[in-house]
Every structure is written in C-alpha cells, then in structure tokens.
C-alpha cells in the first residue's frame, strides 16, 4: 500500500496527475461560484429579522467552514510529512496555511461587518470569535515557521509539529458555541435532522460552501505545483519538462 502511496506522491508523478485535478477544480469552482453568488446575492429572500444583512452569511459561513477544513487538510499533510517524509506533503503544509489564513481573515472581516449592525459591536471577546482569531495566528505561525529554516525540509517538519499542536483548536472552535455562553449564535446547518435555515437560504449557502471547497483545491494544486517546480528545478525531470516547453 505504501509503495503505491510513494508512487503517486513522487514529485514527478504528482506534477503530471495534479494538472487535470487543478483544471477540474477550477471549472467546478467557477460554475458553483457563479450559481451560488447569483442565488445568494440576488435571488434569495431577505431574512425576517436581519433583512438584507443576511447575505453576508453566504460568504461568512463558507469562509469559516473552509478555515477549519483547510486546517484539517494541512494537518493530514503534516502527519504524512512527519511519518513518511513525502516531499509533496511537505510542500502542501505551507500552501494550505496561506489559503487557510486568507479565508480565516475573510471569515473574521465579514463577521465583523455583520456584527456591527446585528449585535451592535464589530468585535466581542467571546469563545467563538477568540478561538477563530487564534486559528488565524496559528496559520501565521505555520507560514513563518516553514520559511524560517535554510533547509526547506526541516522547516516543513517544524511547521508540521506546530500544525499538530494547534489541531486542538479545531474542536474548540466548533463546539465553543455549545460549551460556553457566547454572543455568537449556535450551529444552524450541522443539525441535519432539522436545520434552522429555510431551504431557500440553505441551498444557496451549501452551493457557496462547495464552491469555496473547489476553489481551495484549485488554488492549493496551483500553488503546490508551482512550488514543486521551484524546489525541484535542478532535477532531471524538471529540466526535461522545460526542454519540452521550449
């Protein structure tokens, strides 16, 4: 099984199969994003309490989900890095961190824009907001640490350890609204038996969430492939590839 893993994860092999994955993820992201944005911004009802402000949710919630999803992808790459020392996984850590940090920032900013009109404050130090801010700093730490070594592979291993230390924050973010009194509202969608959003709002939200996920992979593959070429620039397969291109 592990020889199989090593084969698919070899830099040269990864570079060839990830090309079509990147292409399809981009196409799916563009399609879902245009459908999702149309329904969420133009063709869905206003909320009975929040009015038009509810539309911020269609960006905020998928961004917040992705901030945690991206961390789980990064943690998987970190485990593979620490145990199997696979180069492609090492590259993935820092690339996940950059995208994850962007979406965490997006979730925080859109949340603040929603909080001012709805709660009456841009920011409060409740458990949900604080743990999401900690997530942003964890991402920054991973980015900084993976670039702090002359040896890129040593940097990736250090970043992998920080990633796995920080993983305790993910359940804290998720359950913060249930464990403690928070100003942030409780979960709406994860109550699968009876989600507390009307279908006319829930469906655009889920389309947007899928669009964000597809976008994540499109960007992740693009970044990983570019970084891989840079690191492997002195190997024979990259030189052969360049010769072909010229």
């Amino acid at each position: 099984m592990f020889t199989f893993l090593h084969k698919y994860a070899s830099p040269q092999y990864f570079y060839s199969w990830s090309a079509s994955w990147q292409k399809w993820a981009s196409i799916i992201a563009a399609l879902l994003m245009s459908v999702g944005l149309y329904y969420s911004l133009l063709n869905s009802p206003a909320d009975y309490q929040q009015g038009e402000t509810v539309r911020i949710m269609y960006v905020h919630v998928p961004a917040a989900w992705l901030s945690m999803f991206g961390y789980m992808v990064m943690a998987s790459a970190a485990i593979v890095t620490l145990i199997w020392r696979i180069k492609v996984a090492e590259i993935m850590i820092a690339q996940c961190a950059v995208i994850g940090a962007s979406f965490t920032a997006l979730a925080l900013i859109t949340g603040m824009l929603w909080g001012k009109p709805m709660w009456g404050a841009y920011w409060v130090w409740d458990a949900r907001l604080t743990s999401e801010l900690v997530l942003l700093f964890l991402y920054f730490g991973v980015i900084a640490l993976s670039g702090a070594f002359d040896d890129e592979r040593a940097g990736a291993r250090a970043a992998a350890i920080l990633t796995l230390v920080g993983i305790v924050n993910i359940p804290i973010i998720h359950y913060s609204v249930e464990w403690w009194n928070t100003l942030h509202q409780g979960p709406t969608v994860s109550k699968f038996d009876s989600p507390s959003a009307h279908p006319s709002m829930l469906i655009p939200l889920l389309v947007m969430a899928l669009a964000f996920k597809a976008y994540f992979f499109a960007v992740l593959f693009k970044r990983a492939r570019t970084e891989l070429l840079l690191r492997e620039r002195n190997t024979s397969w990259v030189k052969a590839l360049l010769k072909e291109a010229v």
Binding site: D47, Y48, W119, G120, G186, P187, S196
Partner: peptide
C-alpha cells in the same frame, strides 16, 4: 453596553 444576540434561525419574512 447592550448587544443583541442573534439566534441560529434564518427564514424569509413570509415564513
């Protein structure tokens, strides 16, 4: 200071 706590229910006004 008074802050409004919004709940987790989202629905159109008609509903």
């Amino acid at each position: 200071e008074v802050l409004a706590k919004h709940d987790e229910n989202y629905m159109p006004p008609e509903v």
